[in-house]
Design a protein around this nucleic acid. Structure first.
Lengths: 245, 245
DNA sequence: CCGAAATGTCTATTAATGTAGACAACCATA
DNA sequence: TATGGTTGTCTACATTAATAGACATTTCGG
């Protein structure tokens, strides 16, 4: 029996995109590892119950991402199947967690400003409404591929030079250390998923229409005093969040 | 300055769906808490740079979900803004974690079968390839709204009557207890996000085209022997995964 | 070297999505 | 009760997504 892989119509998500999502998942599941090839277009069209051209659109999108490569006369090869596994634990550190999966991790400061705490950020950081915060927008790339896009808030009174240090050191951990905080721990992490907005698409260099995983996290010093509140967006098709408990 | 909330065209995700996603996020962010109303259609159309009819499609989808309600002459009210926060920790228990957020949690067995372990499930459970497993498909509802759809694998040798117990007790924890396992812990959790397939849409009663958060988890007994490998799908617009570390 | 099987390209048509504008219906309030 | 602001409905049209079919091109194995 050939199982029917249903896709839905008239739902505001184009068929080719649904199919691209499913093939991408199959690739990362290792479904095609035996041959290293994606099934032929006609076969896929049959499985999904769509026209061959629709499958071709999906494959074109995956080729654009660099995930597959079509070769006329032979078929469509899988070029890349890894997702980065991003560990989340009590001692979550971006660079440490990815260091054994990629050669090179680079973080960049996109923007920063000083601003008064809003209700949301004040609550998270245990501050009073209106106290000064430093906001930093940063992005991280692994081997040249953007993986995360974060907006972080720090209490300005305690870490006045966060942005300057980060710009120099390229690391939150090191910037904390440079200001006298040797260690910190992850207190809580919330995770949501949604479609990326245009800003996220551009920053993460996503093939548009993609999904982002967003983590909303609070870090605290060893005494439990919050030092960072951040919202990080990850390209959902490039990472897995992995929690070790 | 009115900020321009960009949406993208020709990306395989209809504009109305992108806009619905964004409004849903704004609702859960509390952006409309002051008035309890979504901005007027014409204003939204301006912000997103689309036609009013496109915004109406987005609002219709949100109304269908029961998130908002339009009242002719007055505007569009926010009806519901809560997301369920689903805690993930070393002692993750579905019912316990949600018990203070909803009145009623109900789990149901959709299907079960005995089958030999595949490479994937054998590795996760520390078994040999081909050893007997029990697979159970279950779904959970909170106050009548489906929140999760899980496929779990258990070693058949150790828990031969998993399905029968679950059917009766409606709880994995209780089913384990009935078979002599009083306690278990979460060993690892991986999280990915993607578009829901037709099966997930139906089971979770999602407004189609929605996004699911999938957790791939392993539970083990107190001695560290794996007892359960499961893949759970959550409606991304109805839950937040929250990790306490 | 032929033929099967695969991808590449083209044309034509239909279905779904989005735009544009007009106006009706309804609500709050001055 | 008149008015401005809002949602509801309708028609017409433009653009994008998907289907259908034909045929070219390339690869590989017998």
């Amino acid at each position: 029996m050939v199982l029917k892989k249903n896709v839905e119509r008239q739902i505001g998500v184009a068929l080719w995109r649904q199919i691209a999502d499913r093939i991408r998942l199959s690739i990362s599941n290792g479904d095609y590892d035996q041959t290293g090839m994606v099934p032929p277009e006609i076969k896929l069209a049959g499985q999904f119950g769509v026209n061959r051209h629709t499958v071709r659109s999906a494959l074109a999108a995956l080729a654009e991402e660099g995930l597959v490569e079509a070769i006329q006369g032979r078929g469509t090869m899988v070029r890349r199947k890894e997702r980065l596994s991003f560990p989340i634990s009590r001692r979550t550190r971006l660079s440490q967690g990815l260091s054994n999966q990629v050669r090179d991790i680079r973080s960049r400061l996109l923007a920063h400003e000083e601003l008064p705490a809003t209700a949301e950020s004040a609550t998270a950081l245990g501050l009073n409404l209106g106290e000064k915060l430093i906001r930093m927008d940063t992005t991280s790339s692994a081997d040249g591929r953007p993986v995360s896009y974060s907006t972080s808030y720090f209490p300005a009174a305690r870490f006045p030079d966060m942005a300057r240090h980060f710009e120099e050191l390229g690391s939150i951990t090191k910037s904390f250390a440079a200001q006298g905080l040797a260690d910190y721990v992850r207190v809580s992490t919330e995770i949501v998923a949604r479609h990326a907005d245009a800003n996220e698409l551009a920053t993460l260099k996503l093939s548009a229409g993609a999904i982002v995983l967003e983590t909303i996290a609070v870090n605290a010093d060893p005494d439990g005093v919050p030092v960072q509140y951040s919202r990080s967006r990850f390209a959902a098709d490039r990472v897995t969040l992995k929690m070790e408990t």
